[in-house]
């Protein structure tokens, strides 16, 4: 069953320099209890897609068109009040920056507490007990004591655990994790990911994992969506994408991952970078967005915009090589 289905979502930001097409016709599907990885460089529209699902796009941003079907209902049709019942309760989100994502002036138990009080009708005291329970689940030592702490008394890894505890406290059906490990040390990263996987098993929560770290995706995701310049350029099964990437962007991304032990080889090849920068989102191009950086570009690529072509039932690619 599809718990989340995004159809042709377009989210734009209107500014003085024009309109930024941050998310430009994105469609994706997530099965209940699955882990869907969304990969892309900064500015590819990953986070904006997530915030669109959460209904947290504020002016000057705007969802222009498309559907966000959550458990069959289009979230775009819900009132702010109805949306609030879903936010944090049935869909929750973990953000990239654990250092700044918690309110510095409130105790941890109040920050988790206000959420469970809102969605589960607990009293203040019950919410405190529940908070301690959640902190224990995310393996924070001395949870009773830590619940009374303020964020500044905790390390980054600890704060991200608090965020996870908070996000899972209402037992959501979808957890959106927006680069949850990017700001953490490598050792802490592994712990946090392990923790998320464990909790996913326990709660049967589906995870929408947004990251630019392909290693994380390879580790945990089942389905992968690769985004570039606000569009989906490739999607498919994780093994298929890693073993046999179809879009030149995906294969370039894979080549740019450092591999342990490669430097010891005699030739010492440099890491392959993707030349150039992400194209600006203000202009609508008549040619492929990846054209200027693409190693396989042909003349045709400068004349025509590729469409997303289905390869089989769950994989698709946006490249002229696979068209027609």
């Amino acid at each position: 069953m599809d718990i989340l289905k995004i159809n042709h979502l377009k989210t734009q930001f209107h500014g003085l320099d024009g309109t930024a097409h941050a998310v430009n016709d994105v469609s994706l599907t997530m099965k209940k209890g699955d882990i869907l990885g969304v990969v892309g460089e900064s500015g590819s529209g990953k986070s904006v897609t997530a915030l669109s699902v959460m209904g947290l796009i504020k002016p000057p941003g705007e969802i222009v068109s498309g559907e966000i079907l959550f458990d069959g209902t289009d979230l775009r049709n819900l009132s702010e009040k109805e949306m609030r019942k879903i936010r944090g309760n049935r869909i929750s989100m973990i953000f990239q920056e654990p250092m700044t994502s918690l309110n510095p002036l409130l105790r941890i138990r109040d920050q988790i507490g206000e959420m469970v009080m809102e969605h589960q009708n607990l009293s203040k005291k019950e919410s405190y007990n529940y908070c301690v329970e959640m902190l224990e689940k995310v393996q924070i030592p001395h949870p009773e004591k830590r619940a009374k702490d303020y964020p500044h008394q905790m390390s980054g890894g600890m704060r991200q655990r608090v965020m996870i505890a908070m996000a899972l406290s209402c037992n959501p059906e979808i957890l959106i994790a927006d680069e949850p490990t990017t700001a953490l040390d490598v050792t802490i990263q592994a712990q946090v990911i392990d923790l998320m996987l464990n909790l996913k098993e326990q709660y049967e929560t589906g995870i929408l994992m947004i990251t630019h770290d392909l290693g994380v995706i390879a580790e945990i995701a089942k389905q992968v969506v690769v985004m570039y310049a606000g569009q989906v350029v490739e999607k498919g099964d994780v093994f298929e994408i890693f073993d046999n990437p179809k879009h030149p962007y995906t294969s370039s991304l894979l080549k740019s991952i450092p591999k342990l032990g490669r430097r010891t080889q005699s030739s010492r090849p440099r890491l392959e970078e993707i030349k150039g920068v992400v194209p600006d989102l203000f202009t609508v191009r008549k040619y492929c967005d990846f054209f200027r950086r693409c190693p396989d570009a042909t003349d045709e690529c400068s004349k025509k915009r590729p469409a997303l072509v289905n390869i089989n039932s769950n994989s698709a690619v946006r490249c002229l090589k696979y068209e027609g």
Partner: peptide, 23 residues
Amino acid sequence: DFVRTARAKGISELAVNYRHVFK
């Protein structure tokens, strides 16, 4: 960021403004 977190919790706008913004 923490105001975005607060909004993502689904608490009322009044609670966001008072507990998180005003303070």
